[in-house]
Amino acid sequence: MGLSGKERRILAEIEHALALEDPDLARRVAAINSIESGAETGLRPYGRQARDWLTAHIWTIVAVVVAVAALLAMAVALA
């Protein structure tokens, strides 16, 4: 649900006051908002592409762990 015009105006006033009072914090908040909106990467934080990327990396890590465990088992068996 979107914000009403009055709510957007109040939010803009709060953002402006924050920028005047603490510019560093305002920059950090803007950076967080940019990351969460997916503006920097072109991906939504929990979108399909991000989920697919994460799934692929998790399976890669699992495969490496299984391979290392198998090699250790073989080393112990042959020792």
Rank of each mutant, 00 (worst) to 15 (best):
P45Y: 03
R8N: 10
A50I: 05
T60L: 03
K6Y: 09
L54I: 14
E40R: 00
G38W: 00
I61L: 09
K6Q: 08
H16Y: 09
G42C: 04
E21W: 10
N33S: 09
A73K: 08
V64N: 01
M1P: 12
L18Y: 11
I58R: 10
S37V: 04
R27F: 03
E13S: 14
A67L: 15
S4D: 07
I10F: 06
E13G: 08
R8T: 00
M1T: 12
I58A: 05
G42S: 01
L71N: 02
L43F: 14
L71T: 00
A50L: 11
I10T: 09
A75G: 13
A79K: 13
L43A: 08
P45S: 06
V68F: 03
G5P: 07
Y46Q: 13
A39C: 04
Y46C: 13
A39H: 13
I61A: 13
G47C: 03
E7N: 10
S34A: 14
I32M: 12
V76P: 01
E36I: 09
A67I: 07
M1D: 09
H57G: 14
D24N: 04
A30V: 06
E15H: 12
S37E: 09
R44H: 04
A17V: 00
L54W: 13
G2T: 11
H57N: 15
G42I: 01
G42R: 03
V76M: 09
E40V: 07
E40P: 00
T41L: 02
R9E: 15
V62S: 01
L11E: 04
P45R: 11
L20G: 13
A75W: 13
L11A: 07
W59Y: 10
R48C: 03
E13Q: 15
T41N: 00
N33M: 09
A63C: 04
I61E: 02
T55F: 15
R9T: 15
P45C: 02
E21H: 10
L20S: 08
A12V: 00
P23Q: 04
A19G: 07
T60Q: 07
L78P: 00
S37L: 14
A56S: 14
L78M: 14
A19Y: 02
L72M: 04
D52C: 02
A79S: 13
R27T: 11
V62Y: 00
G5W: 05
I35W: 07
T60P: 00
N33D: 14
W53G: 04
L18A: 08
E15T: 08
S34Q: 11
L54R: 12
I32S: 02
T60S: 09
E15M: 04
D24Y: 08
D22L: 06
S4I: 01
T41P: 02
R51K: 07
V76A: 06
A19D: 03
A77I: 03
G38A: 01
G38D: 01
R44G: 10
R48M: 04
L54D: 12
G2P: 05
L25Y: 07
W59E: 06
E15Q: 14
D52S: 11
L25A: 06
A69G: 12
D22Y: 04
H57D: 13
L71F: 05
R44K: 15
I10P: 03
N33W: 07
R51H: 06
R48F: 11
V66N: 06
V62M: 08
V29W: 02
G2A: 09
I10D: 14
I10L: 15
A56C: 07
V76D: 10
R51P: 03
E36C: 11
D22S: 15
A12L: 05
A26C: 05
